[in-house]
């Protein structure tokens, strides 16, 4: 296990190096730097001004030289300064101020999705081809086909504009920043939007892996021992169905961030997603770079984590 971990972490470091280089390369690939966009809309800014700005930021140096200097700074904990969203502020500080909000949103929606997907997936597997199974299946397809941004708009229109039950956006009402209830009320709609897509896909997954297990011999053995049906399903069937599900959840984490970008934009929820979107629209490359590298790290780390968890819950799998 130790050897496996060390090898995987070493691989992870190499992969991160590649990915960070790739991200850096991509963001600097397009001829015409980030300041060229200043030129349209303002005829007084000439190509010469743009070159001066680029010299100031060291953008006139060769690409590999810039990359290694950036990498060196990052390893020392300096991710550079923002160019557009909050000019002059350290990137890391901006991200830190948003991280908690996004973590809360993504965490809540993860818990909610799992809490809904598992019971309905199991239920529709036990009652395969029943009316409820068809309803759940149809519902899952609805969830998977629903464009998140549209669902968000519809929920805002119904619950915030028409019924006025819930706030239309934001993290909290100004002046009520420490009010838990107020924060929860702001969390309801974004969480619903972010969860629905997951619930659709995951309940389908749980259903099919439960169906596979329900036909197996050891369930008959468990029933023959006189276990209650509940114990058979929960302790014997579900536990085995959940093993591959761990990987599925691990692999959706990065996708969840994609959903967070859209959700936070619709609900003006001040987190990493909307920060990333604003950074892109403002061509704030240091900020975009930092978020992308952190995201890549999250992806790779969650892959490793799900592999490790896999070996913990399934003793048949050994990692050598």
């Amino acid at each position: 296990m130790h050897k496996f971990l060390i090898r995987r972490i070493a691989q992870m470091a190499v992969l991160m190096l590649f990915i960070s280089a790739l991200i850096y390369l991509i963001l600097n690939l397009v001829p015409g730097g980030p300041f060229d966009s200043l030129r349209f809309g303002n005829p007084h800014i000439t190509a010469e001004h743009v070159r001066q700005l680029e010299r100031l930021l060291g953008l006139d140096r060769p690409l590999h030289e810039r990359y290694f200097r950036w990498l060196g700074n990052v390893l020392r904990g300096d991710w550079g300064e923002s160019w557009g969203v909050a000019t002059g502020q350290p990137v890391l500080e901006i991200i830190r101020s948003r991280l908690a909000n996004t973590a809360i949103l993504m965490g809540t929606s993860l818990v909610v999705s799992i809490a809904i997907a598992i019971p309905i997936g199991v239920y529709s597997a036990i009652r395969q081809y029943s009316a409820i199974d068809y309803i759940i299946t149809t519902f899952s397809f609805f969830g998977m086909s629903m464009p998140t941004f549209w669902l968000g708009l519809m929920l805002v229109i119904v619950f915030a504009v028409s019924l006025q039950w819930l706030p239309a956006g934001g993290v909290s009402t100004p002046g009520l920043e420490n009010d838990m209830i107020d924060r929860l009320r702001h969390l309801v709609l974004p969480t619903a939007v972010l969860s629905l897509f997951q619930v659709g896909g995951w309940s389908r997954y749980i259903r099919s892996s439960m169906l596979e297990i329900l036909g197996q011999g050891y369930l008959r053995t468990a029933r023959a021992k006189g276990l209650s049906e509940r114990a058979v399903i929960v302790r014997h069937a579900l536990r085995n169905a959940l093993i591959p599900f761990i990987t599925v959840v691990g692999l959706t984490l990065p996708e969840l961030f994609g959903g967070a970008i859209i959700t936070e934009t619709i609900f003006s929820y001040s987190g990493m997603g909307i920060l990333y979107y604003n950074a892109i629209m403002a061509s704030d490359w240091p900020l975009v770079q930092a978020i992308m590298v952190m995201l890549a790290f999250l992806v790779i780390a969650s892959n490793l984590l799900s592999d490790v968890l896999y070996t913990v819950v399934d003793p048949r799998i050994r990692c050598d």
């Binding site: 992969l15 990915i19 991509i26 963001l27 990065p254 996708e255 961030f257 994609g258 959903g259 970008i261 859209i262 990333y276 979107y277 892109i280 975009v288 978020i291 992308m292 995201l295 890549a296 992806v299 790779i300 892959n303």
Partner: peptide, 11 residues
């Protein structure tokens, strides 16, 4: 491995 939507936006 790379998350799609964030990259789509940047590109």
């Amino acid at each position: 491995t790379l998350p799609t939507l964030p990259l789509l936006l940047v590109f």
